[in-house]
Simulated scan of single mutants.
Amino acid sequence: MAQVKLLGFWYSPFSHRVEWALKIKGVKYEYIEEDRNNKSSLFLQSNPIHKKIPVLIHNGKPIIESMLILEYIYETFDGPSILPKEPYDRALARFWAKFLDDKVMAVVNTFFRKGEEQEKGKEEVFEMLKVLDNELKDKKFFVGDKFGFAEIVANMVALWVGVYEEASGVVLVTSQNPKICAWRDEYINYSPVKKYLPPRRDELLTFFQPRARAQATTSASAPK
């Protein structure tokens, strides 16, 4: 029987990407929570170069980087597909997944950086939201009416951005992004997805609030 382990952080959207894919596929796995400040020997041996989560270990072989892990899960395990059947739709799903993944650091910089880095992040995120708003239009999801690869990667925009906004007081998604707002509501309330969403949103907020306050304090005390 295949042995599957996932090393991650409970508060990480990247870890949750992989968990969702495994759950959609119906893959049985062991989740191992890592300590950010005291990573396990298994983790360090499995990802000695980047030392980042998530790490998927399948039959003793480690796979790293969440996007590559999602592709590995798609290709390796039986069960419902996380990518569309039609080649064009698969390409479209991969395109939007990459687009969203490329913007992750801009989102993070907007909430957890200050000064020029934050302003640069805001500009990039606002442009991303315009593009997404135009793309979604009246679509339920990025590719057809089925939750899949692009939505898994979009979990940062769908859920974590709202948590970050509440924790930091920096608001990005507004009435100027009506399609994003509608898509986010559809995403969070879509019944096949709800069971895969992090069950601890309040804990996510509690986790990120001190970090946001620390950044605000640092900014306020910095020389003008």
Rank of each mutant, 00 (worst) to 15 (best):
Ala2His: 10
Ala2Thr: 15
Gln3Ala: 12
Lys5Trp: 13
Gly8Arg: 08
Phe9Ala: 04
Trp10Glu: 08
Trp10Leu: 08
Tyr11Arg: 12
Pro13Asn: 02
Phe14Thr: 02
Glu19Arg: 10
Leu22Asn: 03
Lys25Ala: 06
Gly26Ala: 01
Val27Leu: 04
Glu30Gln: 15
Tyr31Ile: 10
Ile32Leu: 14
Arg36Lys: 11
Leu44Glu: 03
Ser46Arg: 08
Ser46Cys: 13
Asn47Trp: 02
Asn47Gly: 08
Asn47Ala: 09
Asn47Gln: 09
Ile49Ala: 05
Ile49Trp: 03
His50Cys: 06
His50Lys: 09
Lys52Glu: 11
Lys52Ala: 07
Lys52Cys: 12
Ile53Arg: 01
Pro54Asn: 09
Pro54Val: 04
His58Gln: 05
His58Leu: 06
Asn59Lys: 05
Gly60Met: 03
Pro62Met: 03
Ile63Phe: 08
Ser66Asn: 03
Met67Gln: 10
Leu70Ala: 04
Ile73Asp: 01
Ile73Lys: 04
Tyr74Leu: 01
Tyr74Asn: 12
Phe77Thr: 08
Phe77His: 04
Pro80Ile: 10
Ile82Phe: 03
Leu83Met: 02
Pro84Cys: 12
Tyr88Leu: 15
Asp89Trp: 01
Arg90Met: 13
Arg90Tyr: 02
Leu92Gly: 01
Ala93Pro: 12
Ala93Lys: 04
Ala93Phe: 02
Arg94Asp: 05
Phe95Trp: 10
Ala97Tyr: 06
Leu100Cys: 11
Asp101Trp: 07
Asp101Val: 06
Asp102His: 09
Lys103Met: 09
Val104Cys: 07
Met105Val: 14
Met105Trp: 13
Ala106Trp: 08
Val107Pro: 01
Val107Phe: 11
Val107His: 05
Asn109Ile: 00
Phe111Ile: 05
Phe112Ala: 05
Arg113Asp: 04
Lys114His: 11
Glu117Ile: 13
Glu117His: 06
Glu119Asp: 14
Gly121Glu: 07
Lys122Glu: 10
Glu123Leu: 11
Glu123Tyr: 06
Val125Ser: 01
Phe126Lys: 13
Met128Phe: 08
Met128Lys: 04
Lys130Cys: 07
Asn134His: 10
Asn134Asp: 14
Leu136Val: 02
Asp138Phe: 00
Phe142Pro: 01
Asp145Gln: 11
Gly148Asn: 12
Gly148Asp: 10
Gly148Glu: 07
Phe149Asp: 02
Phe149Met: 13
Ala150Leu: 07
Val153Cys: 01
Ala154Gly: 13
Asn155Arg: 04
Val157Gly: 00
Val163Ile: 15
Val163Gln: 06
Val163Glu: 08
Glu165Asp: 03
Glu166Val: 00
Glu166Thr: 14
Val171Gln: 09
Val173Trp: 02
Gln176Tyr: 09
Gln176Pro: 01
Asn177Met: 06
Pro178Val: 11
Lys179Trp: 00
Ile180Ser: 01
Ile180His: 03
Trp183Val: 00
Trp183Thr: 00
Arg184Ala: 06
Arg184Trp: 08
Glu186Gly: 08
Glu186Val: 01
Ile188Cys: 15
Tyr190Lys: 06
Pro192Ile: 01
Val193Tyr: 11
Lys195Thr: 15
Lys195Pro: 07
Pro198Ser: 11
Pro198Leu: 13
Pro198His: 08
Arg200Val: 10
Arg201Val: 15
Glu203Asp: 13
Glu203Thr: 09
Thr206Ser: 11
Phe207Cys: 01
Gln209Gly: 00
Gln209Trp: 00
Pro210Gly: 03
Pro210Gln: 04
Pro210Lys: 09
Arg213Cys: 02
Ala216Val: 05
Ser219Tyr: 13
Ser219Glu: 15
Ala220Asn: 13
Pro223Asp: 12
Lys224Cys: 14
